[in-house]
Nucleic acid binder design. Structure first.
Lengths: 173, 173
DNA sequence: GGGTACATGTAATCAGTTACATGATTTA
DNA sequence: TAAATCATGTAACTGATTACATGTACCC
């Protein structure tokens, strides 16, 4: 029909969040994003406010505006939106991201590993603690299989980073 | 002095590549990028052609244009460019990147792990083979410590991904 | 001399970033 | 009631993506 409007990761984050709630205001989307997906894929609030309108223009969500007072916008998935989300979830051809790790860029171009390592270690250790705390909280709740799996991935990779930077920190020139 | 023009990762990739060569044409930058940094941080060639001019405008590189024939541009670091590169390399406060892994986004929003896993496995196994081949070639050459370290990181993380997706593929519902 | 790979850009579009701004509620 | 903090946007700018376009050199 329409030449498919390109859906970005941000689009799918909004669609996915709307898939959990029946209806949501931008603020609820923002709140739902923070502390969940936001832990491994942040989106600035300006985007979270802008994206639903793009999706509405493309027919993937509906907007209901409050009459009185605050005139908030409430968004909900349309059939097309649900379909786009489901197709994306089912699509088996997902290209893995590149590493794109700034600290690696520095190593590549000759930075002293011992200079880079401490900062990385601290950041990754803090991140690991956060992930494990979140995981402990999620553990018992039902319906959190997806988030738990992503946390597992985050935890494992973070541990690899910690081991990596510990090694480089120890190999002082 | 000047309100510091913001240098992006792309800027540092160009600066870093110019730091290896005394002088380079955009094509040489492109070639130098492909198969090295390009393995974990790709930059489209349109950017590799555009970025040096931005850097020139900011005083970090000089441009020398060929008189005859092809009138190619040759770029070289200025003092300021070398300083910016060195300061970036020495700066210990590097914020680690987010995971931003599309496949994780899908898991988070409820995709069937068994549906996602095969494609991820194949992609990561291929990637691992590439990395190990490059590493084997680099191993003997002198002056490749930086690239070897980044490859090590890539290899370790790719192995973690493979183990992760193998586990999810095995846990068929 | 015709094709194919190499080499070198430009143009259009747009999502993402950053900053600005302000209204509504709660709390001290 | 003054101050935070919660909630909700808008505006400006620009790097990144994608596509278009063309020139040059080498090879069969």
């Amino acid at each position: 029909m329409s030449s498919d409007p390109v859906l970005t990761p941000t689009s799918y984050i909004v669609l996915g969040l709307l898939g959990f709630a029946d209806e949501a205001t931008p603020y609820e989307l923002k709140a739902g994003h923070a502390g969940s997906v936001g832990n491994f894929w942040s989106v600035p609030h300006s985007q979270i406010y802008a994206e639903p309108d793009r999706l509405a223009a493309a027919g993937y969500v509906t907007v209901r505006r409050e009459e009185g007072g605050r005139r908030r916008k409430h968004y909900a998935l349309t059939e097309a939106g649900r379909r786009a989300l489901d197709e994306w979830l089912a699509d088996p051809t997902t290209v893995p991201a590149e590493m794109r790790e700034p600290a690696l860029l520095k190593l590549f171009f000759g930075a002293d590993p011992a200079a880079v390592a401490p900062g990385q270690l601290e950041a990754h250790r803090r991140r690991l603690a956060e992930y494990e705390e979140i995981r402990a909280n999620l553990r018992q709740q039902p319906g959190t299989e997806g988030p738990v799996l992503t946390l597992d991935a985050g935890i494992e990779h973070t541990k690899v980073w910690i081991a990596y930077w510990e090694r480089l920190a120890a190999e002082g020139g």
